[in-house]
């Protein structure tokens, strides 16, 4: 009897969660279908070349951001944990700074420094996109660092490193063949979060005048009624598709990873 009641409470909480998550989506869907004829908002959005163009641009930027921030963070977190564990709290603090410093401040700083010689990045498209990536690396830093750090803590990096070293492996080999493959789950979760951040970000992309998805969505909502709702839902679906694709690429045939321990 008691168990039954417990499971009813559990289902109630679950239902509330589902409602919280899906009600806005359902409302948006409902609103987007009010256009006449019913799917006009969707057809017109999909026919707008700026929609697919900006989405594609943002996906590419997300890919570059994820790659670059992993290349930066994995060796750093690894080195800190292996060689200077005392500096860990300092590094952690630094990675939390994006929570404290607003994106507007960050982007004005970037523009001030990189819009004139000797570093006139903003004068070219590729330069501005590079600045955008740099900004996104900073924004995703707290999530990415935390994910990687947690992943590193779940394996015995010291012993694995020393075992590899004693067999003749250098640092690059160790990172590439031993550390990275064992961080798969951590890297995936970091990548998901970064992807979500990049697709929804408005401020930095807007000030750098990049044709990204965030500014496009914003512009749309100022000029149209039903289309923004439709585009939000489409992009929501596409984001999920992208995440599933990443998860599929990084899938693991093994069910669990365990180190040491007799059993």
């Amino acid at each position: 009897m008691k168990r039954r009641r417990g499971s009813i409470a559990w289902w109630l909480v679950f239902l509330l969660g589902v409602l919280y998550f899906f009600l806005p989506l359902v409302a948006t869907l409902d609103f987007s279908l009010k256009a006449k004829p019913p799917f006009a908002a969707y057809t017109s959005s999909l026919q707008d070349p700026k929609f697919l163009g900006s989405l594609l641009y943002s996906l590419v930027i997300a890919g570059v951001t994820i790659t670059a921030s992993l290349a930066l963070i994995v060796p750093t977190a690894y080195w800190v944990q292996l060689r200077v564990p005392r500096a860990r709290s300092l590094v952690e603090f630094v990675t939390l700074l994006p929570f404290v410093i607003p994106a507007v401040v960050l982007v004005f700083g970037l523009i001030r420094v990189y819009s004139r010689p000797p570093l006139p990045f903003t004068h070219t498209d590729i330069g501005s996109s590079a600045l955008l990536v740099a900004g996104y690396i900073v924004l995703s830093l707290p999530y990415m660092y935390r994910a990687v750090d947690t992943g590193l803590r779940s394996i015995d990096i010291r012993s694995l490193t020393e075992a590899a070293q004693s067999m003749g492996a250098g640092w690059l080999t160790i990172l590439w063949r031993v550390i990275l493959p064992n961080l798969r789950v951590a890297l995936l979760s970091g990548a998901f979060l970064t992807l979500a951040i990049v697709l929804g970000e408005f401020t930095i992309a807007n000030f750098l005048a990049r044709p990204a998805f965030g500014p496009y969505l914003n512009l749309l909502s100022q000029s149209k009624a039903y289309e923004p709702a439709a585009v939000s839902l489409i992009s929501f679906g596409l984001t999920w598709l992208a995440m599933i694709a990443i998860a599929f690429l990084g899938r693991d045939t093994r069910t669990r990873i365990e180190i040491g321990g007799a059993h």
């Binding site: 075992a163 004693s166 492996a169």
Partner: peptide, 30 residues
Amino acid sequence: NKRNVGMVFQAYALFPNMTVASNVGFGMRV
């Protein structure tokens, strides 16, 4: 990694992402 000294650890320290055969062959691949 410039010495030619093999080491066995208390906690085994096998590479979790590799099979037994790849673990044993690791040094030779390096």
